[in-house]
Amino acid sequence: MKRKISLRINGKPYTDEVEPRLLLIHYLREVAGLTGPHIGCETSICGACTVMLQGRAVKSCTMFAVQADGREIVTIEGLAANGALDPVQQAFWNEHGLQCGFCTPGMIMATKQLLQDNPSPTDLEIRHGLEGNLCRCTGYQHIVNAVKAAAGKAGA
């Protein structure tokens, strides 16, 4: 039986009837029409689906949409304000922190979480902070550089 949920995504209200089994990632992509959060696995390892739920990073593939009822979600689409890139997005661009780009939205959201918890992380702290996000292209080095660059900027 479908259930009605109401939530805010990137500041906008959404109300929909959903099956309880509908995964949040499918809700975001198929119902809310977003393309930023991606699906890279089914075991909660890859992190490509990472979004912020109530201000904390979660894997939206490992949550049912009904669990997000009444909650506030921010996805990669919600980062750039008035066309100005978020400092983390800017840093990933400047430092070549991406290649195929598939992991990037999740990686950037995980970086937001990391810098929120630890504004001046060491290299090792950055690497551990991104343990929940796989990248197959970059070897992570330019990602680490990007996080460091973003950490150096106020407001990141």
Binding site: G47, V58, K59, M63, A110, Q113, L114, E131, G132
Partner: peptide, 9 residues
């Protein structure tokens, strides 16, 4: 435990 996203949930 796990990673930060897992620890958040």
């Amino acid at each position: 435990i796990g990673d930060v996203q897992v620890r958040n949930m």
